[in-house]
């Protein structure tokens, strides 16, 4: 099942939640790059708060078929991507998420299990942490999960081809380009989709 929203006549807005050091801002940029490679108009930007390792970080990506003029934060996203499940509870990750929108979470838990914690219909999960460690991305204790989760997003949303995500990663990742691309592919193949 592909959990995509109807597109074409309106802008798609995506919000990332992560912790400083996990690569949320880079993920928002790589996703924008992938959309851009598929001839879409894009913008990606961070919400800059305190820039500390481990502190909650929010980043945004917009995508549209026409030039994007919106110059404000995203308040009602179509998609939310959570790079670190420990943020759930500390941060209101569902805030403003459209009723029919989708949330993707990096966790070992299933979408059904997550539904007990999050009151939302469409939930997808992926164990991006294990995938990142397997591909030696970051360290065992602080794996960098941002590329893996983008692969899962490609499958969940159907908005962008996994091949494009992998190419965007190869071009944008500062190191271990192929490992990062393969992590995205593995997450693409292993994301668990829940919802109607």
């Amino acid at each position: 099942m592909i959990m995509s929203l109807p597109i074409g006549d309106r802008m798609i807005e995506i919000r990332f939640h992560g912790r400083g050091g996990q690569g949320s801002v880079m993920a928002s940029k790589i996703l924008a790059k992938a959309f851009f490679m598929e001839e879409k108009y894009v913008s990606a930007f961070p919400y800059y708060g305190v820039e500390r390792r481990g502190a909650p970080v929010t980043a945004f990506t917009r995508m549209d078929d026409k030039p994007i003029r919106a110059r404000y934060q995203i308040y009602e996203p179509d998609y939310v991507i959570v790079l670190d499940a420990s943020l759930i509870g500390a941060v209101d990750v569902l805030k403003g998420l459209k009723k029919d929108g989708y949330i993707l979470i990096n966790t070992i838990k299933s979408p059904e299990e997550m539904k007990k914690v999050l009151n939302h219909k469409n939930i997808a999960t992926v164990d991006a942490t294990t995938i990142a460690i397997k591909h030696h991305l970051g360290s065992q204790t602080a794996p960098i999960v941002n590329t893996a989760i983008l692969g899962a997003f490609a499958r969940m949303s159907g908005l962008v081809k996994i091949e494009t995500i992998m190419d965007a990663i190869r071009q944008a990742a500062p190191a271990k380009q192929e490992e990062n691309a393969l992590a995205a592919k593995e997450a693409y193949e292993n994301v668990k989709l829940g919802g109607d």
Binding site: S43, A44, R71
Partner: peptide, 12 residues
Amino acid sequence: EDAFILSHTSEG
């Protein structure tokens, strides 16, 4: 340019 709104926003 406006801080962050342009300075740190990526676009084509």
